[in-house]
Design a protein around this nucleic acid. Structure first.
Lengths: 216, 216
DNA sequence: GTAAACAATCTTGCATACAAGAATTTAATT
DNA sequence: AATTAAATTCTTGTATGCAAGATTGTTTAC
């Protein structure tokens, strides 16, 4: 009948967590979810265990699942790692770029320009994601690319908050511009440095994040 | 009695895969595993899904689970990422080292020296792991540390093969020595470079790996 | 003899059932 | 009135049952 119930449930609950529909710390009741999604507890449990493996949910033995609340410090740590592997992807991409990669990056970059100029931060959000994924793909290291996508996804909600900060979209785009230049010049180390800086949240950007977190 | 049946099963099967007890490509039959471990299919299924999430097992819809066979190319990709994040851990460790970190690293390093001199490659294997974990911990980025441990674990079987190569243990130890020096000198970039080179499998080391893989 | 189609069997996917450990409420004692 | 203990209720963890898709084997037709 359906493609795969567990997969669907996993995605639904994951989206619920990412979109803050299920708040951090909230308890995820199995029967409640089961009735809500019109299935039995079995596939719900399997979906929850997958989310546990991803690190979005904590399962305390005999005491149910709760949505993990990373806290500012851990979020900072995740961004620190993201910055580094993103820099790595950029470095590899600069050295391994093919024509197809070039085309994909340019296309996404052009879309970013459009949504940035329009001041549409939601549209920019999606174009930005495409841009970054194009770079991951250009690294020609599938494992790295998968790691980047996964971590990017986990950081999605916080990234989104960041974009709301004044001028962040325009700043982000101009940083992209420099990244593209370095990539196309084949300057691996500059691509790495620029991407690392682009992704990392240092100084006042971290303060912004923390204050936005506590305010919601 | 037992802490958690699913957890136990997950570890057992995971160890079975890592120790090549379950060969890559092998099909993991649910009822077979269930009778073997004296449980029902339900916890087995949950354990398999966790392994699927980790990336050790592939679950094809309605066609059961098989042990993933990464293949030389993917293993190379994983080592490439491992080298980078290991380098990152080293870089952070060099800057954030505490006295406790210093002590832990020195202790593991001393043990490595002992097992290396004794030519005991199995003992060296474990001491080496302690050494690397001490560096991860010294990075004072728990998320990074967890990622390193997880990836290290997944690469475990291939790493072990590497150590069997002639002179590899002695070479490894002398590389550790340089790493320790850079860390204690607070030279972040040198620590990064040394660790990256220490972990990465370039050139002939990759050929060695491939030939060892095909020979087993 | 080979290939295709059909049937029997096996295996997975989800639902339901049952047991055991938490949580909560109520009752009793100080 | 407060605190503790017992009992009830609720929730999770594991087993079992049943239906649908996959696999395998057999038979038949060319």
């Amino acid at each position: 009948m359906s493609e795969n119930v567990v997969q669907r449930l996993r995605d639904e609950i994951e989206n619920g967590i990412i979109s803050n529909d299920f708040a951090p710390g909230e308890r995820l009741d199995e029967v409640q979810l089961a009735t809500r999604f019109g299935v039995s507890r079995t596939p719900i449990r399997e979906a929850l265990m997958q989310l546990n493996a991803i690190g979005l949910v904590e399962i305390r033995p005999r005491r149910g699942a709760i949505v993990i609340d990373p806290g500012p410090h851990r979020i900072f740590e995740m961004f620190e790692v993201m910055a580094e592997i993103e820099g790595m992807a950029g470095s590899l991409a600069a050295r391994r770029l093919t024509d197809a990669d070039r085309t994909a990056i340019l296309a996404a970059h052009a879309d970013c320009k459009r949504s940035s100029s329009a001041g549409d931060s939601d549209a920019y959000y999606y174009d930005n994601e495409r841009f970054h994924r194009a770079i991951y793909a250009a690294s020609h290291n599938d494992f790295l690319s998968e790691q980047c996508v996964a971590l990017h996804r986990r950081l999605q909600p916080y990234r989104r908050l960041q974009l709301r900060v004044r001028n962040r979209v325009a700043t982000s785009f101009s940083e992209h511009d420099a990244v593209v230049e370095a990539l196309f010049a084949g300057d691996a180390e500059r691509a790495r440095t620029l991407l690392r800086q682009h992704v990392s949240i240092q100084g006042e950007r971290f303060s912004d994040l923390v204050s936005t977190l506590s305010r919601r």
